[in-house]
């Protein structure tokens, strides 16, 4: 069974924002209003000169146990057979409960469609055509690795199986399919 997910390798993220721009153009997000499907916040730890800076790409976690889906009153938020969490813009009435229910702050209201919207892994526009999501396709750091987490031959599958990649806040019980390889100093 295909189980689409994404590994995010924080070790090589340079915070360049290519993924953001690619996503905005690919998916025509309402970025002009500051609403977008992916963000790359910058974190600084420590004080001069012993500081660590981490860029952490954020997007929909495509949870196995997605709170957005269980709170949706109309079934607009749903999960595809291959594990991608999507919003059906026809059925969404825009109650925004999912926006508040998503612990990963991955959702926003697209006023043009009068519907909630979010990262789709570029499901219909790219993945179903055999391509990878726009953010993965453009990433100069090879930070984002999209693939079938159940496929041991895929890079994503290998990393998922290795245990190197970890979910964000597993305590929330959402079981995300976006996993992070943490940044560790090697010397």
């Amino acid at each position: 069974m295909t189980r689409y997910g994404m590994i995010i390798d924080l070790r090589s993220c340079i915070g360049c924002g290519a993924c953001i721009a690619a996503c905005d153009m690919e998916n025509e997000t309402p970025w002009e209003e500051g609403k977008r499907r992916t963000h790359v916040p910058r974190f600084t730890f420590g004080s001069y000169p012993n500081i660590t800076v981490v860029y952490m790409p954020r997007l929909c976690m495509h949870c196995e146990n997605p709170p957005c889906v269980s709170v949706c009153p109309t079934g607009a938020s749903h999960v595809t057979v291959d594990g991608v969490v999507l919003v059906d813009h026809e059925i969404c009435i825009g109650c925004k409960y999912c926006v508040v229910a998503c612990p990963y702050d991955a959702r926003y209201v697209d006023e043009r469609m009068r519907s909630v919207d979010k990262c789709t892994f570029c499901y219909t526009n790219r993945v179903l055509k055999g391509d990878v999501p726009a953010c993965d396709a453009t990433c100069p750091g090879r930070v984002r690795i999209f693939g079938d987490l159940d496929d041991p031959n895929s890079e994503a599958g290998r990393l998922a199986a290795s245990g190197l990649a970890k979910p964000l806040r597993p305590d929330l019980g959402t079981n995300p399919k976006v996993l992070y390889v943490p940044k560790v100093k090697s010397m």
């Binding site: 269980s70 709170v71 949706c72 109309t74 079934g75 969404c92 009435i93 109650c95 409960y97």
Partner: peptide, 25 residues
């Protein structure tokens, strides 16, 4: 509540879709 919906005219979907897990339903 209905006025707060993005699509108030479709509020009935919250009733007829019978999504029992949703607290809105």
């Amino acid at each position: 509540l209905i006025l707060d919906l993005e699509k108030p005219e479709k509020f009935y979907l919250a009733v007829i879709k019978f999504q029992t897990s949703s607290w809105v339903f």
